[in-house]
Simulated assay, not measured.
Amino acid sequence: MPTRTDGAAFFSKNCNSCHGVDGTGGGPAAENLSVAPTDLTMLSAKNGGTFPQARALSYIYGDPENSHLSRVMPQFGGEMAEALVPVEIEGILTPTPRELAGLLFYLESIQQ
């Protein structure tokens, strides 16, 4: 099972440039974006104090409500779907790409 440390490594490789090292949205590429990156440390605070696992996963993996073509953040998917692990999301064991499971654990750990 992936860990928070695995997620931190994925975040460092794929997310730091826009979301910043601490996840607050102040990465070096952020100033060039038309839409400011989300402060990832405030996801729980904006969701009544509960980390929105399902919503975060759907947005990162490829939000069905917003095409990846209409947003700045890249859609993660493709080959990731080949390495799935069961993650309990909102009480349901959900097959989740290994890298994104670790990322979810990491994002939950940085909530304020």
Rank of each mutant, 00 (worst) to 15 (best):
M1T: 14
M1G: 13
T3E: 09
R4S: 15
T5G: 10
T5V: 14
T5P: 02
T5Q: 15
D6L: 03
D6P: 07
G7S: 04
A8L: 14
A8V: 02
A8S: 12
A9V: 12
F10P: 04
F10I: 13
F11A: 02
S12M: 08
K13M: 13
N14S: 13
N14Y: 11
C15F: 00
N16M: 11
N16S: 15
N16D: 12
N16W: 09
S17V: 01
S17F: 00
C18P: 04
G23M: 05
G23I: 01
T24H: 10
T24Q: 14
G25N: 06
G25I: 03
G27W: 05
A29S: 13
A30G: 07
A30M: 06
A30I: 03
E31I: 15
E31G: 15
E31A: 15
E31H: 11
N32R: 10
N32P: 00
L33Q: 10
L33F: 09
L33R: 03
S34V: 15
S34G: 15
S34N: 14
V35N: 10
V35P: 00
V35H: 06
A36N: 10
A36L: 12
P37K: 00
D39G: 01
L40I: 04
L40F: 13
T41D: 01
M42I: 04
M42P: 00
M42K: 15
L43E: 03
L43W: 02
S44M: 04
A45G: 06
K46Q: 13
G48Y: 02
G48S: 02
G49C: 06
G49L: 03
G49I: 05
P52M: 09
P52L: 07
Q53I: 11
R55Y: 10
R55L: 14
L57Y: 13
S58M: 14
S58H: 12
Y59M: 11
I60R: 00
I60A: 08
I60E: 00
I60H: 00
Y61S: 14
G62K: 01
G62F: 04
G62Y: 03
D63Q: 08
D63C: 08
P64V: 11
E65W: 12
N66Q: 13
N66L: 15
N66E: 15
N66W: 11
S70C: 08
R71C: 04
R71D: 01
R71G: 09
V72A: 10
V72Y: 01
V72N: 07
P74W: 00
F76Q: 01
F76N: 02
G77H: 05
G77R: 03
G78C: 04
E79R: 11
M80C: 06
M80K: 04
M80T: 08
M80H: 10
A83M: 09
L84P: 03
V85S: 02
V85T: 08
V85W: 01
P86H: 05
P86M: 08
V87S: 00
I89T: 08
I89A: 06
E90S: 11
G91Y: 04
G91C: 09
G91Q: 02
L93T: 12
T94C: 05
T96A: 04
P97Q: 08
R98P: 07
R98T: 14
R98W: 13
R98D: 11
R98V: 12
E99I: 08
L100M: 12
L104N: 01
Y106Q: 03
L107T: 06
I110Y: 06
I110R: 05
I110W: 05
Q111E: 09
Q111I: 09
Q111W: 04
Q112E: 14
